[in-house]
Amino acid sequence: MGITIKQIAELCGVSIGTVDRALNDRPGISEKTKRRILEVAREHQYRPDLTARSLARGRTMTIGVVLFDLYNRSFAQLANAIERRSRERGYIVHLTLTGKDPEMEKNCLRQLVQRKADGIILCSVNEGARFEEELRGLLTPIVTVCNRISDRWPYVGIDDRGAMKEAVGQLLRKGYRRFVYVCPPLADRGRVNIHTQEQRWIGFREALEDGADAVSGGQGKFETAVIAQRDYLDALRRLDLAAGTGKTAIVCSCDAYALEVMHDCRSRGLRVPEDVGIMGFDNIDMLKYVSPRLSTVHYDMEEFGTRAADSLIAWIERGEAPSVPSLAYRWIEGESV
């Protein structure tokens, strides 16, 4: 059995409260005494009694995280940032993955609550009044990321609509007049939560609507095709790259799609950006290995994770849900358009 706080106090000739302050890096103790206590704790291989600490605080010091998967590098970066920040604040993370399955998500939430998680960070595939009633019934602080549920729940994200609109505006200024939009199925709206994808799609449409008035020579119409993931080559054939005067851009709702598009276009002899421009969204960390450099929208996924963890811990420890302002984003000028 390891040494206890009481035994450390006896060896150092101080009170139990002084030892607690030293071990938890709290003020009210001299540096000399603190160093002595920490030295004794190390010599005797002191290990904190986490169960006792949890009982004393009324918390388990654990945070649940519910994400779609880790195939998308954005989610992997998000999970890393949440875990790191939570660990810095003294919390352990329980990560669960739903595979975008609504029922699996609900099951993950129930399991985390049963395991006494102090709070949950949720990227939801569910939405609607009935689901919100289920969330309220969990009686657990919940912060949402990426997919907004409603204003009832703190949300960490960016203005996806504005970001996409500004990015497509960059393409219009570069002379692109024909567009293929690559995204997950938008018909899922109402069955699953596609808030982020929907906002990006709206921003894309608004950019073209505003851009139509700015095109000179009466060329106010744009040719567009909206397709899901792997059907973009058919869309390119429908637009006919060899016809007309406008350049063609493939606008992807995330970098993962953009990388697939770039690979497939190359395999079919299409040059990027000479024959077709490609734009992504997310600025995932692996883009530094890609040539030509992908033009994309950047936001700081590290900040996403840090803000989500800080917001949730503030709710856990203070008893009220803090508001989180929309995070910053910017256009990354690459070489693919």
Rank of each mutant, 00 (worst) to 15 (best):
G334P: 12
G218P: 12
R238T: 13
S323E: 11
R173F: 08
I158K: 04
A187T: 11
Q114L: 10
D234M: 03
L139G: 04
Q111W: 05
Y329S: 05
L236P: 12
S295E: 01
A129R: 09
C183V: 12
I194P: 00
V156K: 07
L138N: 02
P322N: 00
P154C: 02
I158P: 14
E198P: 01
Y299W: 15
L139F: 13
G246T: 11
E335Q: 15
C123P: 07
H94C: 09
S86M: 07
V297K: 03
R230S: 07
G119P: 14
G137F: 08
K221S: 13
A308C: 08
I194E: 01
N80F: 09
I121L: 07
I202L: 12
V276Y: 13
D213E: 12
K32C: 00
E166C: 10
C146W: 15
V143T: 13
A328G: 08
D118K: 09
I120H: 01
T248M: 03
R318E: 15
Q199C: 15
I142N: 01
D159I: 04
A258N: 05
L287M: 06
T98I: 00
I3G: 03
R177N: 02
I278A: 01
V125R: 02
M1K: 14
Y46K: 04
D210W: 09
R84N: 11
C183P: 03
A225I: 12
N24W: 10
R35T: 14
L67K: 01
I29H: 08
N24M: 03
Y257K: 02
E83T: 15
F304N: 05
I8A: 02
R200Q: 07
I313G: 02
T98F: 00
R200I: 10
E83A: 10
E274Y: 04
K100R: 15
L78G: 04
V156T: 10
T98Y: 00
E303N: 05
F179A: 03
Y299A: 01
V251L: 09
S267E: 11
R26T: 07
A9E: 04
R152V: 02
D210S: 12
E260R: 11
G211P: 07
D188E: 10
Q45E: 12
A76F: 11
N72P: 11
P273T: 08
T51C: 06
V182T: 06
Y181C: 09
Q199K: 11
T245N: 07
V192I: 15
A9D: 02
G190R: 07
P184R: 05
D49E: 05
W201F: 15
V93S: 07
R177C: 07
L241M: 10
P185F: 04
D255P: 13
R26I: 00
T245Q: 09
K106N: 02
G319C: 06
K32F: 11
K100G: 00
Y289G: 00
W201A: 08
R268H: 15
D20Q: 04
L135V: 10
G218D: 02
L112E: 03
K116P: 08
T98A: 00
E43H: 12
G246C: 09
G99H: 10
A249N: 04
S86P: 05
R59A: 08
L95P: 07
V272N: 00
V145W: 01
L270K: 07
R152K: 10
I313R: 06
P27I: 13
L270W: 09
R271V: 13
W153Q: 02
L172P: 06
Q229K: 13
L208N: 03
L186K: 08
Q111C: 06
F222L: 03
G90H: 09
E198M: 13
I37N: 04
